[in-house]
Lab assay of single mutants.
Amino acid sequence: MATDAALRRLLRLHRTEIAVAVDSAFPLLHALADHDVVPEDKFQETLHLKEKEGCPQAFHALLSWLLTQDSTAILDFWRVLFKDYNLERYGRLQPILDSFPKDVDLSQPRKGRKPPAVPKALVPPPRLPTKRKASEEARAAAPAALTPRGTASPGSQLKAKPPKKPESSAEQQRLPLGNGIQTMSASVQRAVAMSSGDVPGARGAVEGILIQQVFESGGSKKCIQVGGEFYTPSKFEDSGSGKNKARSSSGPKPLVRAKGAQGAAPGGGEARLGQQGSVPAPLALPSDPQLHQKNEDECAVCRDGGELICCDGCPRAFHLACLSPPLREIPSGTWRCSSCLQATVQEVQPRAEEPRPQEPPVETPLPPGLRSAGEEVRGPPGEPLAGMDTTLVYKHLPAPPSAAPLPGLDSSALHPLLCVGPEGQQNLAPGARCGVCGDGTDVLRCTHCAAAFHWRCHFPAGTSRPGTGLRCRSCSGDVTPAPVEGVLAPSPARLAPGPAKDDTASHEPALH
């Protein structure tokens, strides 16, 4: 009773807030009518008042009428009001819900409408889902798969039609296919003929059939049928067999079959498995989609049935006599038709004709302190090069084509190399640097090759510096006499390219 009084008091307290929050009759008014909170006449009256005075006034009048009803109607109103779709449509209802007392429970059932309790003993237990329907569909599909699609060729003596089998029958139906081979029951999904010589313990000319048996419980189990008994694959494991010639990621696949039913060829011909030897223990289905393919039931050349050999690369099948050149017997292992072999060759040939990528240039590290003349020119003028003790990398590039010797140069053309002071002394051009340390401070000019250098860098042994005729380390061993002091540049003949010694390969005349 306390809860009923509290709900009535809360409705009177929030009546105006609810009326202002509800700006549309749908969905709240319609939901109240659906849950029998508002009768039909009051529903029509509220809609009429909404058209006349507006939605807030109409709902305020409806809530005032609701306060005169019993506690069950008020409880049902609060339940409908706080439904998710009403809270989404009328956003101003959320503060009312947040301020609702926590001790007021809106989930209690309506009085007088409590459903009768059902004894637990009368409640049926839930049924577990079964796979009976899938099993029945598999039974119905198996006879259809064994139905012949056409008439065999005159040369083929193997013609068999499976008798119709009602689904209610649980007995196995067997077809006489000759040579002791028996087909599987209607619940078998796949059958492959297997030679009895590969099964340990088999006697006589009995041949087993590799099947997948579907049981009534819905589970499946792969086994071997020899005669009327089934054997699990673990009985046929043979770890010492060295003649297993397995197909790549293979499961067994029928390579020879008669049109209309699988079996042995007439005249004692023995149908073979995809792999010879003992049956392997793992009978998992292969991951290669080509091995799941269903080959055609007629020859791809003459479009006739009979004894066919199936290609492992495509769905086509052929007569042995229709092949070019014809085959006398079934080859062992994987067999592919000429079209598949030709496609494989065409895929391999473009790969062989692809040009080989060019090898990157060989990189040879230079000892610290040495650099090529090109690196000396590329440096920024007026700045010493940083990191001189790091190992430089010199790339061996292809030799350029031989060019004509340089033409003779006048001494005026070499004027930018040297600057003559007032006393006739050779001065260095701006930006000249030593080729060893890279520093341009207090550098000297070689009178023979006009290269800038430090005496301490080229002659670290402490050799005394002569007063005139300074030469760098590369030119100090040259027998050519030094030019007379005061000459602007060496003779043009000295600039012609010539053979250089091994220790002077990195010091070429550089223009500054």
Rank of each mutant, 00 (worst) to 15 (best):
A145V: 06
A33N: 15
A61M: 05
A5Y: 04
D198N: 11
I181E: 02
D76V: 07
D70W: 00
S135E: 14
Q108T: 14
V199D: 08
D34S: 00
D34G: 04
D4A: 05
K131G: 01
F77A: 03
W78R: 01
A265K: 06
S217M: 06
F100T: 00
V104F: 12
G150L: 14
P129W: 01
K259W: 12
E17D: 14
G150V: 07
L47C: 00
A6T: 06
V22A: 02
I224N: 04
A152G: 07
P119Q: 10
S249I: 13
S107P: 02
K164A: 12
G201L: 14
V199C: 07
R127P: 07
G227W: 06
E237F: 00
G218V: 11
G227I: 01
D36M: 00
G150M: 03
H35V: 02
F82T: 01
K52R: 06
S187E: 04
V20L: 03
A117M: 08
F59R: 01
R127M: 11
G204K: 09
E171W: 15
P101S: 00
N244F: 11
V22I: 15
A186R: 06
G263C: 06
A5T: 10
P143A: 12
E17H: 03
A258L: 07
S99F: 05
R132S: 01
R203Q: 12
K52Y: 02
G150T: 06
D103A: 03
L62P: 00
T183I: 03
P162V: 03
G204A: 14
T68P: 02
V226F: 08
R247D: 03
P126W: 02
G197A: 09
K221F: 01
A31C: 01
M184G: 10
A25I: 09
L122S: 14
L177G: 00
D98F: 03
D76L: 05
P126M: 02
K83I: 02
L32F: 00
G204P: 11
A145T: 13
D41G: 02
Q225G: 05
L13A: 03
E207Q: 06
P115S: 15
D41A: 15
P129C: 08
D238Y: 12
W78F: 04
T16I: 01
S168M: 15
I74A: 02
P126I: 02
Y85D: 02
C55S: 01
Q213F: 00
G227R: 04
V214H: 02
L87E: 15
R79F: 06
R12M: 04
T147I: 12
L128T: 15
V256L: 09
K120Q: 03
P163V: 04
T72L: 08
G242A: 13
P95T: 14
Q173G: 07
T72R: 02
A271P: 10
T72A: 10
G218M: 10
K161V: 11
E171D: 10
F82V: 02
F230D: 06
K159S: 08
A6D: 10
Q225F: 01
K52F: 02
K50D: 15
A170P: 09
S248K: 05
T46C: 08
N244I: 11
T130A: 15
K161N: 08
P126R: 01
A117D: 02
Q182E: 15
V104T: 03
I211S: 07
K102Y: 14
K221W: 03
S169W: 15
K245R: 04
G197R: 10
A33W: 06
A144V: 11
P233S: 10
P101A: 04
P266V: 09
L106T: 09
P101H: 12
L128I: 13
K243V: 08
A261G: 10
S168Q: 04
L62T: 01
L97R: 07
T183P: 04
G242C: 11
L177R: 06
L63R: 01
G178A: 04
W65P: 01
Q157T: 07
T183E: 04
T16Y: 03
R174F: 15
R12L: 04
T183S: 09
G263H: 03
V256P: 08
R113V: 05
F26C: 01
S217L: 05
V192S: 06
K111N: 14
Q213S: 06
